[in-house]
Nucleic acid binder design. Sequence first.
RNA 1: GGGGCUGUAGCUCAGCUGGUUAGAGUGCCGGUCUGUCACACCGGAGGUCGCGGGUUCGAGUCCCGUCAGCCCCGCCA
Length: 522
Amino acid sequence: MSVEGCISLRPNDMKNAGMVTGEIEIKAVKLERLAKAETPAIPVYRSSQDELPSEELRLQHRVLDLRREELQRNLQLRHRLALECRNHMDALGFLEIETPILTKPTPEGARDYLVPSRIHHGEFYALPQSPQIYKQLCMAAGFDRYFQIARCFRDEDLRADRQPEFTQIDIEASFVTPADIMKWVEGLMGVLSSHFPNVEIQAPFDVITFAEAMERFGTDRPDLRYSLEIEDWTATLRNCGSNILMSAVGEGGRVRGIVIKDGSRLSRKYLDQLQQEVKEGGSKGLLWVKRTFEGGSGPLSGHMEDESYAAMGMEPGDLALVSAGSDTITSTTLSIARASVVRKLKIRKEKSHAWLWVIDFPIFGVESNGDFVANHHPFVMPVHQDAALMEDEPESVRGMAYDLVYNGVEFGSGSIRNHDPSMQRMIFKTLGLNDEEIDSKFGFLLKTLSSGTPPHGGIALGVDRIVAEFVNALSLRDVIAFPKTTAARGLLEGCPISLQDKDLSELGLTRSSEISESREME
RNA sequence: GGGGCUGUAGCUCAGCUGGUUAGAGUGCCGGUCUGUCACACCGGAGGUCGCGGGUUCGAGUCCCGUCAGCCCCGCCA
């Protein structure tokens, strides 16, 4: 509507303090209807106690959903964050350089989204999983400080915190140490978070090593708002008489666990449910014992002595959650249990904002079949004192890598890169690539490194996750204007769709017989 | 690829161990009222119970399959 008239004060007894414009009204002299609207399929203006329509409908009618105040605000804040990011990086002398969207498929890592070439039948581009290699090429090209707010694409199954296309603040600089990058990012996060009233920041952030994070919290992205820590009770409990614990220790495992002060109030029902939770997370199970004034209860209580309670720091009323086996198993189990108990008991936060750097990640992970895979990506430079282990003990080689974690959410991940082509080639070989494969997939990178590339490193920060966390959104979908569903569909526009045969043949593609003709677009 | 939850009026939901004509709130349409702001009051329309098959005298309800959404495992360098 277009309304012309005089703004005037409402009569005193008709003012409404609950409305922004509750004190005034317009004495209209002219009314014009600018556009007609059908009754909306989903309510746009709803009272606060009304339930939201189902997410399926909200995504189908995304335009209407986006009119909601909450989403308007989320996208405004997202804009503010991007703008401030550009200003801040510019002030630090960083150049925003665009990198290709049509790129080369990579053999490592996530599945690529592929784009068939019309001009070269049978050949494909890939959408970038990240601008990683391009930003390294920028370093070699002499742009010493690069950044980009870049769209990335990964064709993997989705989660609440994963979209098939997502946005990163991508940063790379030459002649830097991890400390330089960390300092820049701390400054950047300070500027960005200042626009979000419920986020606070204090630099420098805490730093712990990957090994320490796994030992104390069982995860590489611990939520340090809570202090509950994992302890090693192998010595205390190895001879306690429990078959489960003794056999796990006999096989070289450890006994680890968490003491929950006053945890006895957790019900049997909840502890059974917690069993289920850790099993779904891939664990075998979880033992527990409650210390009482009379003695104890729970699966382990029969094996507990007063001395063992004391050694574990348990007082009457406390609960211990215990896991035994390989570090991988106990870490997974206890980190899931830790997060669950914190939620259940609404344990008081030590602080509201836990910023953390996790450093010294192992470069390689080991698959169940013994193959090595890159933990982050294959371009991480080994820490100096570990470089000698590359040949004989690659699993022990730590990388000059750093993850940024806020309240248990991974915001970003970065590293110093290999600018030495021979080290880079050795890493590719450890990952199982032969020289021929290395040259065909990454020849252009190695050739660049051989042309004299400055030492360099950087980081990539997940914009969607950062905004989602800063506005307290339950899902990435609430901070993205037009997100995809968990099956990677766009419900508003209706994608993906099947194509007609003539469209396919122009691209040199033919329909597989397995895909029925009925799927063909009319 | 696997597991779980959900799918009933435009929207949010109820619908028991299978049983007559599937309900409520809200929205929508018509009317009354006209200083309202979740207006109030009166009246009305509106359902392929996601879709397909099966069991049964009878299916919203039970079984099988399938589609869609959400959550999780695998996967995500």
